[in-house]
Design a protein around this nucleic acid. Structure first.
Length: 521
RNA sequence: GCCCCCUUCGUCUAGUGGCCCAGGACGUCGGAUUCUCAGUCCGAAAACAGGGGUUCGACUCCCCUAGGGGGUACCA
């Protein structure tokens, strides 16, 4: 039975690199009909674990990565919160102590530190002298009488080596002599991650530990713990981390300033803040940026786009397949095809996937996506009045592929939702197309009358009308259409002209032209 | 310092000794379409880190160097 896990710590946000690792775990479990488990790494967290966990669970749900055991769903192997598993960890430590695989160490931190520095000075690798190792209760009592406190350390082998087969890396070899007597329980009784994770993985019967590459070097000590406890070993697969844009350094949420210097990253970030501002979100770079999954939900990305992009960040099926449905990715996923080198996060490619998936969304559904942005921006009331539905459909239809992210609707179509007297003019466009000696102004005046007399405001009828008008005048369509666009939308760019006229409708179009004409005069 | 891992176009990648004077995708540049902007279509430039081996033959195997990254905590 395949059982995989992802262990988020409740930090209040879901990191994009973490999701990628989680995705691989999820995919592998689903592919083999196994379970995907969420375990909460809250050992060093204070209160508010639930509050800090909520956005993370929300992110998983939004992306469609469901878990079989863990918070909210429970399971037979719980508890799934590390903070509730201390008795298990204590039992493991006791067992290790009893079997001689660990010992109480009464060294003071600075004493160990001194040894470390001495080794450093002599250019040899540090190995703890075990000077304050208590081998008997009597010795322990003596150290304690000196006012010393104990930590529990692993009594690591000092010769031989460990050979491991990693499902991504292949065979890896470690010399035991290079390993320290790592601490597994602190002086205050709390437990170190490595101990906890080994115990949990065993208790949860995890079959495959799929985690970030940074844990590769930590694996020997974990193997030592597991073997000393008599556990059978899970398979390991160390996947490369997601790197910074244009770099090989691990992507982190703390180096935002640096990433913002990357053009593409900055562009994505700007898109986000632009939309956030329009919908009145109060944001800070701490909680709202492209490293955090929530960012994408807030500005109207599609989960499928993100998941597909992340899938290909370090994994590929072959030399041509780019788009994967959920079931296709589950079918074709394998650990063996995960790349060994870190892959850097490319905002442009993410956007390209988003564009592709957005193009596939049916108009009805796009209208729904877009509606919430218009409501948040205060352009449409909630609940919307009943004429909004058809109008929205027409707008989304007219927007076509211009809509990449749902939040784009605000730039694309806000003029359709403001009063005729209130839409704003792009002054540059106005100057270019509508200063009073521009011949387009007279044409506009004339065409206004034709529009007023029009019986139909269907896009196709309007197109026929303008073409006839243009032909009759002996001019090119460009000589009036740009002026018309500015006159009714205030902007120099937009949807197809005839769709725009049609969506606005006759009364609005006439009112807007009149308003513009009076501004020209 | 020591240990471990990694290294194909700007980026994501295909490539498991001859199919590769290296294929695809994003991006870039050029062109076409057009009422603008998108989109779409066509085309171009663009990479095997370097050096030694092994082999009839190396992007593919081995060694070295360089570069990058991770670990080395009473962090996870």
């Amino acid at each position: 039975m395949v059982r995989t896990r992802f262990a988020p710590s409740p930090t209040g946000y879901l990191h994009i690199g973490g999701v990628r690792t989680a995705l691989f775990n999820w995919l592998f479990a689903r592919k083999h009909g196994g379970q995907f488990i969420l375990r909460i790494d809250d050992t060093d967290q204070q209160r508010n674990v639930q509050a800090a966990l909520e956005p993370i669970l929300h992110g998983f749900k939004w992306l469609g990565l469901d878990w079989d055991e863990g918070p909210e769903v429970g399971g037979d192997y719980g508890p799934y919160y590390q903070s509730q598993r201390s008795d298990r960890y204590q039992a493991a430590v006791d067992q290790l102590l009893a079997s001689g695989h660990a010992y109480r160490d009464y060294a003071k931190p600075d004493e160990v530190q001194a040894e470390r520095e001495a080794a450093d000075k002599e250019k040899r690798s540090f190995v703890y002298s075990r000077t304050w190792m208590a081998e008997s209760d009597a010795q322990a009592a003596e150290f304690e009488s000196q006012g010393r406190q104990a930590v529990v350390r692993l009594k690591m082998p000092r010769e031989g080596c460990l050979e491991l087969h990693d499902l991504v890396r292949g065979n890896v070899r470690f010399e035991w002599a290079n390993e320290q007597d790592h601490v597994i329980q602190r002086a205050d009784g709390s437990f170190i991650y490595h101990l906890a994770t080994v115990v949990d993985d065993h208790d949860f019967q995890i079959s495959h530990v799929i985690r970030a590459e940074e844990h590769l070097s930590n694996t020997p000590r974990q193997v030592f713990i597991a073997q000393s406890l008599g556990y059978s070993l899970p398979e390991f697969a160390h996947v490369p981390f997601v790197a910074e844009p244009g770099s090989k350094t691990k992507l982190s949420k703390r180096k935002l300033d640096k990433y913002l210097k990357n053009r593409d990253f900055a562009k994505l970030n700007d898109l986000g803040t632009h939309i956030a501002n329009q919908i009145g979100m109060t944001i800070s770079a701490e909680t709202f940026n492209p490293v955090i999954v929530d960012f994408y939900e807030q500005i109207g990305f599609l989960p499928d786009a993100i998941v597909n992009y992340l899938l290909l960040l370090g994994w590929s099926l072959d030399d041509k397949t780019e788009y994967f449905s959920r079931s296709a990715m589950i079918d074709s996923f394998s650990l063996e095809r995960i790349n060994k080198a870190p892959a850097s996060f490319d905002p442009q490619k993410l956007l390209a996937f988003q564009q592709h998936y957005m193009q596939e969304v049916p108009v009805k559904q796009k209208a729904k996506l877009v509606l919430s942005f218009l409501q948040q921006a205060g352009l449409v009331s909630s609940p919307p009045s009943c004429d909004v539905g058809p109008k929205l459909t027409a707008i989304v239809q007219a927007a076509g592929d211009r809509l990449t992210v749902a939040g784009d609707i605000l730039d694309l179509a806000s003029e359709f939702f403001v009063a005729d007297q209130d839409f704003a003019y792009d002054e540059k466009a106005f100057q270019k197309r509508l200063v009073d000696d521009n011949p387009a102004v007279a044409l506009l005046r004339e065409f206004r009358e034709e529009l007023a007399a029009a019986e139909s405001f269907d896009a196709s009828d309007l197109e026929r009308m303008l073409k006839a008008f243009v032909e009759q005048k002996g001019i090119k369509i460009g000589q009036i259409i740009h002026a018309l666009r500015v006159a009714i939308t205030g902007k120099s760019v937009g949807f197809g002209m005839f769709e725009t006229l049609s969506i606005l409708g006759k009364p609005s179009v006439l009112a807007r032209i009149d308003r513009t004409l009076s501004k020209v005069a």
